[in-house]
Simulated scan of single mutants.
Amino acid sequence: MSIVTYIGLNFSVKLNEYYKENEVEIDYVFSNEENRDVVKQKHFTTPYIYEVLEKGNPIWQMNEYQKIHSPYNYEKSKKTFLYLCHLLKELLPQGDYCEVYICWLGEEDEDREDELKINLNNPQIEVLNIYEKYFIRIEN
Rank of each mutant, 00 (worst) to 15 (best):
K40C: 05
K40V: 03
K40Q: 12
K40L: 14
Q41D: 04
K42A: 08
K42T: 11
H43K: 13
H43M: 07
F44G: 01
F44A: 02
F44K: 00
T45S: 11
T45E: 12
T45C: 07
T46N: 03
P47I: 03
P47S: 05
P47W: 05
Y48A: 07
Y48V: 01
Y48I: 01
Y48M: 06
Y48L: 01
Y48C: 12
I49T: 06
I49V: 15
I49Y: 04
Y50A: 04
E51M: 05
E51I: 04
E51Q: 05
V52P: 00
V52S: 08
V52R: 12
V52A: 09
L53Y: 15
L53H: 14
L53W: 15
L53T: 14
E54C: 14
E54Y: 01
K55P: 00
K55Q: 12
G56Q: 05
G56F: 08
G56E: 06
N57M: 14
N57Q: 15
P58I: 11
P58Y: 11
I59E: 00
I59M: 11
W60V: 02
Q61T: 12
M62Y: 08
M62W: 06
N63P: 13
N63D: 09
N63Q: 03
E64S: 15
E64L: 08
E64P: 10
E64Y: 14
Y65P: 00
Y65A: 14
Y65S: 13
Y65T: 15
Y65C: 10
Q66F: 13
Q66H: 10
Q66D: 09
K67A: 02
I68F: 08
H69M: 12
H69Y: 13
S70L: 07
S70R: 15
S70H: 15
P71G: 09
P71K: 07
P71I: 04
P71A: 06
P71Y: 04
Y72P: 01
Y72G: 07
Y72C: 08
Y72H: 11
Y72D: 11
N73Q: 15
N73E: 15
N73P: 00
Y74I: 02
Y74P: 00
Y74F: 13
Y74V: 01
Y74A: 03
